[in-house]
């Protein structure tokens, strides 16, 4: 357990002390969202209608650009080999890194989402389901994205490849994240959508942890 927490703490410290690396994903998230009013026009009604979609899609993209450095730095300086040799199973080390990644990107994006909603004229009733959906959905993104990040270690042009590999896998999370918002807006119960998002997280946990660990073992051979 100590080793597990130590990995989370280490990743958090590295991200916060190394020149604001943690802020990069958030910066991308905010800048990308800012582009939408320029792209579709500034009418509040239109923006309010598509605000939840903009926020969710941008959260997916922000997560995707952050995966490139999930394992790469550790691979380059040899940390990953030590993690693989440590008594802590590599699966748990991967889980710890995914949790740290979620705290730095998913949670931060979730906390920023209401502010972005304000700027995009998101309907008032949509704030709760949007945030609840992001809270359940973004951990699944960190877990599934870990597979992509681990698979492209040592590949040529790995960064662009991650997007192609993981974005199709994110589709169910996006669908149910959005349907939670839409259902609330037309007065349908919210719970089923959140339950399905929870189920997706429950599937992403073993798939992501074992998949990433298998891919990391391959990269370390």
């Amino acid at each position: 357990m100590n080793a597990f927490l130590a990995i989370i703490g280490r990743d958090l410290r590295l991200a916060t002390r190394r020149g604001g690396e943690a802020a990069l994903t958030l910066g991308f998230f905010v800048v990308a969202i800012t582009l939408f009013p320029f792209g579709v026009g500034p009418e509040p009604e239109l923006l309010g209608r598509i605000a939840a979609g903009i926020i969710w899609v941008t959260a997916l993209l922000a997560a995707t650009v952050s995966f490139d450095r999930l394992f790469r730095a550790d691979m380059e300086d040899g940390t990953l080999e030590l993690l693989a040799l440590a008594p802590l199973p590599l699966e748990l080390a991967v889980l710890a890194k995914a949790i740290a990644h979620w705290l730095l990107t998913g949670l931060a994006v979730t906390l920023l989402a209401p502010v972005m909603g304000l700027m995009l004229n998101l309907p008032e009733a949509a704030y709760g389901p949007l945030v609840a959906g992001l809270l359940l959905g973004t951990p699944a993104l960190s877990l599934l994205g870990g597979i992509g990040a681990a698979l492209v270690l040592g590949a040529r042009r790995g960064g662009a490849l991650v997007g192609l590999l993981v974005l199709p896998l994110f589709l169910p999370v996006l669908i149910f994240g959005i349907s939670a918002v839409e259902a609330t807006l037309i007065g349908l119960p919210l719970a089923p959508h959140l339950l399905i998002l929870g189920a997706l997280l429950a599937v992403a946990l073993p798939v992501g942890v074992f998949g990433s660990a298998a891919a990391l073992r391959l990269a370390l051979e």
């Binding site: 597979i147 698979l151 896998l169 589709l171 169910p172 298998a214």
Partner: peptide, 21 residues
């Protein structure tokens, strides 16, 4: 080997994607 891992992960996710869509 990397592609093989991806194919297996994709096979698990494919039904989930199909039914969500």
């Amino acid at each position: 080997r990397a592609a093989a891992i991806l194919a297996c992960v994709g096979a698990i996710n494919l039904p989930i994607i199909k039914y969500s869509v």
